[in-house]
């Protein structure tokens, strides 16, 4: 990649917080560092990954409304976690966490455990007990 051909495709994925560093060549083939705000294939790959997450969240929200799934599943996905990671944070087995994904298992949760989940998800407990997918934060 030549230094004057380093793409600068800004999709605001870096939110102005930084520019990333790429290595590119001078005319003689020697290398220099060049800052960039982004490249379209990268930006598309990232937005695709986020779209996938948002689609999954919508489906889970519908399942919660239908009384099938629980907010635990929703927030796990929202926090980009997978069951083994969530189980580690909770200090319980993966199979128990999975049980809490269902509305029935969720209903049986103690206050203490709910608070622990809320801490892990970095939300107030009410976001779990009074679930509302339209909340922004």
């Amino acid at each position: 990649m030549k230094k004057d051909e380093v793409p600068q495709d800004d999709a605001n994925v870096l939110e102005g917080k930084l520019k990333t560093l790429k290595y590119a060549t001078n005319e003689d083939g020697s290398y220099v560092q060049v800052q960039t705000v982004g490249w379209e294939p990268e930006n598309l790959a990232l937005s695709q990954a986020w779209e996938d997450i948002h689609e999954r969240l919508e489906i889970i929200a519908q399942d919660i409304a239908a009384g099938k799934s629980s907010p635990i599943l929703y927030f796990m996905e929202k926090c980009l976690m997978e069951p083994p990671m969530l189980a580690k944070h909770m200090g319980i087995g993966t199979w128990r966490v999975k049980r809490h994904f269902k509305a029935k298992g969720f209903a049986k949760l103690s206050q203490k455990r709910l608070e622990k989940y809320a801490y892990v998800f970095e939300v107030p407990v009410e976001h779990l007990t009074q679930f509302d997918p339209t909340r922004t934060s």
């Binding site: 990649m1 380093v6 990333t20 560093l21 790429k22 290595y23 590119a24 490249w39 294939p41 990268e42 598309l44 790959a45 990232l46 695709q48 990954a49």
Partner: peptide, 16 residues
Amino acid sequence: LGNLVRMQEEIGTGGG
């Protein structure tokens, strides 16, 4: 494929 592109290009690889 998207994941491959991210592993290859995203912050940290310097490109390629």
